[in-house]
Amino acid sequence: MVEFKILYFATARDAALDKSSETLEVDDGRPATLASAVECITAKYPKMRAVLESAMVALNEDYCDKDNMSNIKLKSSDTVAIIPPVSGG
């Protein structure tokens, strides 16, 4: 079981029903990866799927390649951030 923190920004926060952050856990028997963390988030908030198509994902304030998420290991107390592009000004 891996417990991780998530930070939601802009439209990701809207999709997470106005939460700026929360702690979730991945516990499916397989080694936890960034991909499984994202699956966990989209299972809870279906609207996050559309947000994630254009959002950046960061792990511990470090940019992550979305194409490589199943290879990025997730440890307990890691922080995942979902950062959609903000276009306004």
């Binding site: 920004f9 802009a10 950062i83 592009p85 903000v86 276009s87 306004g88 000004g89």
Partner: peptide, 10 residues
């Protein structure tokens, strides 16, 4: 490049 909306900015 900067951006802002509602209460957020980048």
């Amino acid at each position: 490049s900067g951006s802002a909306v509602r209460l957020d900015g980048q």
